[in-house]
C-alpha cells in the first residue's frame, strides 16, 4: 500500500499503459517496436494483478503468483520472437513490417 494513493490511480495508469501497448501494436512499423508494445500490454496486466492483490485481497497471494509466472513466460516469448526476427533479418536484411508482405490476400 502506498500512502495517499488509492487503487483508482494505479488502475488508471495500467489501463493507459495497456492502451498505449495496443496502439503501438497497431501503428508501429518495426517488428522490434511491435514486440515492445506487446511487452507493455503484458506488464500492464502484471501490475494489475499485483495491485489488485495488494489493495483488495491482501490475505491471499494469488495475484502475485500469477504476475511472477507472467514475467517468466513473457521472457520466453520475447526470446522466441527475437530469434525468429533474427532469422528473418538474415534473409531480407530488414525488420520492417512493410518488407514482410510476401503473402497477401
Amino acid at each position: 500500500m502506498i500512502e495517499g494513493i488509492s487503487i483508482y490511480e494505479i488502475l488508471a495508469l495500467t489501463t493507459i499503459l495497456f492502451f498505449i501497448g495496443v496502439y503501438g501494436f497497431v501503428t508501429r512499423k518495426n517488428l522490434i517496436s511491435i514486440l515492445i508494445s506487446v511487452e507493455l500490454i503484458l506488464n500492464a496486466s502484471v501490475v494489475n494483478f499485483v495491485v489488485i492483490n495488494k489493495y483488495l485481497y491482501p490475505d491471499m497471494l494469488q495475484g502475485v503468483f500469477v504476475s511472477i509466472f507472467i514475467i517468466a513466460v513473457a521472457a520466453a516469448e520475447t526470446a522466441l520472437a527475437v530469434s525468429i526476427i533474427i532469422n528473418l533479418y538474415r534473409q531480407i536484411n530488414s525488420v520492417e513490417v512493410k518488407d514482410t508482405e510476401v503473402m497477401k490476400y
Binding site: F18, G21, V22, F25, L31, I34, L35, V38, I41, L42, A44, S45, N48, F49, I52, G63, V66, I70, E77, L80, A81, I84, I85, N87, L88, T100, V102, M103
Partner: peptide
C-alpha cells in the same frame, strides 16, 4: 514470416486475455 506473424499476434492475444483475467 509465418512464424513472426503467429508469435506476435498470439502474444497480443494472450496479453489482452490476461488483462481480462485480471
Amino acid at each position: 514470416e509465418a512464424g513472426i506473424k503467429l508469435i506476435l499476434s498470439s502474444a497480443l492475444a494472450s496479453g489482452v486475455s490476461l488483462f481480462g483475467i485480471s
